[in-house]
Design a protein around this nucleic acid. Structure first.
Length: 585
RNA sequence: GCGUCCGUAGCUCAGCCUGGAUAGAGCAUCGGCCUUCUAAGCCGAGGGUCGCAGGUUCGAAUCCUGCCGGACGCGCCA
């Protein structure tokens, strides 16, 4: 029996009993009762609307069905403490406390595995993200894509899939040629020539720095006798023809800019398993092979001196050009070849993170894959909407360096990686995002990042104060029965939801769900913790029968917050440095 | 014109896929709480015609249709 993946965790016996009960009432074949977590705690721990859904097929009043189901569930067994019928016919189920204590006792021993789960069917997934052209610095929207792509990859890893993080480098084609010509113009400008950066070229000032670096490396500005850089000493550009010189400049500039992008991403905590160069597809002969195959199968045809792909046969609004009249390839050819290459590399799925300006390409890309004989379901695309950086209620528009956009590096200089990452992750990808710099720079707990990190640090500090090593402090299940405060139970229940939150976020490719969970958990934890300020009896370290149980709860919270932060690629500080203390010292 | 996404509290956003019980959170506002296991915090309150209009349903923020408003696409550019 396979339970739908989106089900909440519940004792097996309960699930089985509920299923047997609906079968006995004559539920249609294939009907599976769904258990949910009610929003209102007074509705119990789990609830099902089975009776409401069955009312139609069984042609009976829902409350009547609900009462019969309630009688059939074995109260006192299978973790079921009580069952009651409520509202129009909901079945509200209260679980035995032992279910809670048992779960809680398992958190700390699980350690770095807490929150991870096995997949029903494990897949090899290629997560491709950022993939910015190596023609300039990364901007904030790339940062958003980087954070989301990396977190989605982690979510899949945590739920039993095998993942590779990949960056596709567009190092071929017209944009790269334009880069070369733009660098050439900047080099000439540096020598005092009056030339303009070509129309449609890269105008940003960053290229002047790239140009002077290339000039220095290739010895154009070096003094006689200066040793040229070791290894691949550059061939003097003058010995190449003009187009050769441009191509050479383009390749070097692209390499420099790619390295800068990699540096920024590294600082952001994002590392790729593969940097896949577009040029490889041509060098390896994959593109000609693909074109020949498509033409042979009839999927591609010649018209008006160009080669077209019949994407309209597969849902695209019109056919698309593969090879232009001048004989050069469109980027579309590379993209198709690239995805087929991924399939050839034995991936079951390719999850691509694309900017909003590319959303129109999803349909044709899938159509193209289908035309090439690849199941279009292979490709899954996450569209990242734009980011506007706001300060003092105004949009921050210009970058000092790039001219037209705010760079990721500039943002990191202001906020640091943890805050930037979290802010990018806390909203759904498909919603345009306003990055609130004022809130990002606020170090109080109004800032959700600090709210979560403070809660983690507080739990660590409790153990420090008690002079205990939390990793070695396992609390057995029976001790937890001493937890009696409503706030303690609330925190305990929140902790135990973590694995299903991770699973749900992974399925939805939605890291923001983890953020929401962490904020909610941190809020509950802070409330619980601060009760100790009003009443010293309620402190974790207060002497009394609940001390061990509270230590166990604090420890489970600590592990959960740490795991959640790590999953998202953030640090989990054991101490927060407060400016107040620094100033007062 | 066509396509995709978005429209929920003053602001930023969840909830929509998989229809159900009084529509949630954070920030902001207002009120209460500090000789603290770090009060840069905690507790409480007010605040919403779920863009509009139809339809399906016992039941619609959620599904369907139309309209209004916004973003982005609609190249033999990438």
């Amino acid at each position: 029996m396979t339970t739908p993946e989106y089900e909440v965790s519940a004792p097996d016996g309960l699930r089985r009993a509920l299923r047997d009960a609906v079968d006995q009432l004559g539920a249609p074949d294939g009907f599976t009762p769904h258990l949910e977590r009610p929003g209102d705690p007074s509705h119990g721990d789990l609830t099902t609307n089975a009776a409401l859904v069955l009312a139609g097929p069984l042609r009976r009043p829902p409350r009547e069905i609900a009462m019969e189901l309630a009688d059939m569930l074995p109260t006192g067994q299978s973790g079921i403490a009580a069952v009651e019928v409520a509202g129009p016919g909901f079945l509200n189920i209260r679980l035995d406390d032992d279910v809670l204590w048992e779960g809680l006792a398992g958190v700390v021993p699980a350690g770095s595995d807490w929150g991870r789960s096995a997949a029903a069917s494990s897949e090899r997934v290629n997560v491709e993200f950022v993939s910015a052209n190596p023609t300039g610095p990364l901007h904030v929207a790339h940062g958003r894509g980087a954070a989301i792509g990396d977190a989605v990859a982690s979510l899949l890893e945590w739920t039993g899939h095998s993942v590779e993080r990949e960056y596709y480098v567009n190092d071929a084609g017209r944009q790269i040629e334009l880069l070369g010509r733009s660098v050439d113009a900047r080099m000439r400008q540096a020598r005092g020539e009056t030339v303009e950066v070509p129309e449609g070229g890269y105008q940003g000032e960053y290229l002047s720095a790239v140009a002077s670096r290339i000039a220095a490396e290739s010895g154009e500005n070096s003094r006689p006798g200066t040793e040229s850089p070791a290894g691949n000493a550059a061939e003097p550009a003058e010995s190449l023809g003009d187009s050769g010189r441009i191509a050479d400049l383009a390749a070097r500039a692209a390499a420099i800019l790619r390295d800068e992008q990699a540096d920024d991403l590294d600082r952001f905590g994002v590392r790729f398993d593969n940097w896949f160069a577009e040029s490889r597809l041509f060098e390896g002969g994959e593109v000609p092979e693909l074109l020949a195959r498509l033409e042979l199968s009839g999927s591609a045809y010649r018209d008006d001196e160009a080669l077209w792909l019949r994407t309209s046969d597969f849902g695209d609004e019109k056919d698309r050009v593969l090879v232009k009249r001048d004989g050069s390839h469109t980027y579309f050819v590379s993209d198709i070849a690239y995805h087929i290459d991924k399939r050839t590399r034995q991936f079951d799925r390719s999850i691509d993170v694309w900017g909003a300006d590319h959303h129109g390409h999803v349909l044709r890309m899938r159509a193209a894959l289908e035309a090439a004989g690849v199941d279009p379901e292979f490709l899954e695309v996450i569209i990242i909407q734009l980011v506007t950086v706001m300060r003092g209620g105004e949009e921050v528009k210009m970058s000092k360096r790039a001219g037209t956009f705010v760079t990721l590096r500039e943002l990191l200089d202001e906020t640091g990686p943890d805050v930037a990452r979290y802010f990018f992750l806390m909203r759904r990808a498909e919603v345009p995002m306003a990055f609130d710099l004022d809130l990002a720079l606020d170090t109080s707990e109004k800032n959700p990042v600090y709210k979560v990190q403070y809660a983690h640090a507080r739990m660590c500090r409790i153990f420090e104060r008690a002079d205990l090593d939390p990793d070695r402090h396992a609390v057995p299940m029976r001790e937890f029965a001493a937890l009696e405060l409503p706030s303690e139970r609330e925190v305990a229940k929140a902790v135990l939801r973590f694995p299903e939150v991770v699973a749900s976020a992974a399925r939805a490719r939605a890291p923001y769900q983890v953020c929401q969970y962490l904020e909610q958990l941190a809020g509950a934890v802070n409330g619980w913790y601060h009760e100790g300020n009003l009443d010293p009896e309620k402190r974790v370290l207060a002497e009394g029968p609940a001390r061990e149980a509270r230590l166990g709860l604090a420890n489970a919270v600590r592990v959960t917050l740490r795991q959640g932060l790590r999953l998202l690629g953030l640090s989990a500080p054991e101490r927060m440095i407060r400016e107040l203390e620094e100033e007062g010292a």
